[in-house]
Design a protein around this nucleic acid. Structure first.
Lengths: 226, 226
DNA sequence: CAACAGAATATTGTTGACAATTGAGAGATG
DNA sequence: CATCTCTCAATTGTCAACAATATTCTGTTG
């Protein structure tokens, strides 16, 4: 006998995705997009009404966001969008650099020819983008490049990768647009080249150092703008 | 007019500490103590009844534990005590070593005479404990030694410290008593000495390397027992 | 007897209501 | 007029009930 794909009473109210995840994503978007400013309190009641759900999912979503460091909860008072001080941002840069270095090191320890070629091609492509003055294109590919390294590091580094990503999100809480100011694109891509070279050579500690160094420059650039 | 210290109806049910924190601590204790085995599901209803509270605090506490990596939540199914595979444990050792190295590095960059003397005395004391064959005493002081380093690294590393502590808790989820097998106490304390020496010298990268190396040995010891 | 459909049960997801706590403003008092 | 206390409103903490979903058991069928 053939099965009906959907035997449920009303197709309309289909919701595969748990409500709390929807709420979580929406809150994250609001925070990262700046709709809710750092230091503001998340009013459970208001948010619940605004999102058309009960307070419980909002509460749970808030805890989930706390896990990512985007908000901090105070007992009997509420959860606040985390206000990132300069010290916090510097710590995040340090830890992110640490994770990036680790990911490069792990990748260097077991990179195959395919990923080496891909990364090498990536750097070459970025070089050509610099030559043609395409900054937005460079930034986009730059992101993809680092994502690819994190991904290629493999399952034995997925915890480090998760932290790397989380730190990246957190640092965006810093007052807007201090960080994305362009460094020298040429210098940046030279650092990329050093990273790939170390990975190609299977130089684990060299890759770690190159990866960490590249990210520490972001911190240095931030410090220069004071 | 003099105020009564406690004007609430019944003194008995005074509770300063939020209930969810009590539940969280109790659950953490149960998990770390092994009352709930890795892979087991946390039954909200049963736990709520057992602890004499409603399900809501239990749910929140579970989310909070998820934040620490002690449990993993599956939608519409429940939260499970995290089952730590060998690969996970190895990752944790790596990351913990990374954090330890970072903490040592930060401390080395701004250690004052007092903390240097304290750590130096700590190592000396541990040496004497080895001499008198007091293993339990050594382990206890060993813990205190590392805690002290983490603490003395200061507020500019409190994020790294938090991760260091969290990783330490997580690794305890590994099947019991594989990890605390004693290495050579003498060798261990020699590594302590190297750490302190680098800190005393203000050798940031040397301290990082020594701190990380010391913790990587834990990983190596684990791998030896396979 | 194996395998599958379907009901019964157990468990999580969600909701609205109530209790407890915090913060702010009104009013009294020196 | 400053300050302190008390009351009140706003908000979070907790609870118990209901809805949706997953799991288990059972009876039927080939």
């Amino acid at each position: 006998m053939e099965l009906d794909q959907d035997t449920r009473p009303h197709v309309a109210l289909r919701r595969q995705r748990p409500l709390v995840l929807e709420v979580r994503d929406e809150l994250e978007r609001m925070i990262l997009h700046g709709d809710i400013a750092p230091g503001d309190r998340l009013n459970e009641y208001a948010l619940a009404e605004q999102l058309g759900v009960s307070r419980a999912p909002v509460r749970e979503a808030a805890r989930s966001l706390e896990r990512e460091g985007l908000v901090t909860a105070v007992a009997n008072e509420g959860v606040y969008v985390r206000k990132l001080g300069l010290e916090d941002a510097l710590q995040l840069y340090d830890l992110r650099a640490l994770m990036a270095g680790h990911l490069c090191a792990v990748l260097a320890s077991h990179a195959d020819a395919a990923i080496k070629a891909e990364l090498r091609g990536c750097v070459a492509h970025m070089d050509s983008l610099i030559g043609s003055g395409d900054e937005p294109g460079y930034f986009e590919l730059n992101l993809a490049f680092h994502d690819r390294i994190a991904e290629a590091a493999g399952p034995n580094a997925d915890r480090a990768r998760a932290l790397y990503i989380a730190f990246g999100k957190e640092v965006r809480l810093l007052r807007r647009r201090v960080l994305d100011g362009a460094a020298s694109l040429t210098q940046s891509n030279e650092e990329h080249d050093r990273i790939v070279a170390a990975i190609e050579a299977g130089d684990v500690e060299g890759a770690r150092k190159a990866g960490a160094w590249h990210h520490e420059n972001g911190k240095k650039r931030l410090l220069d703008r004071l």
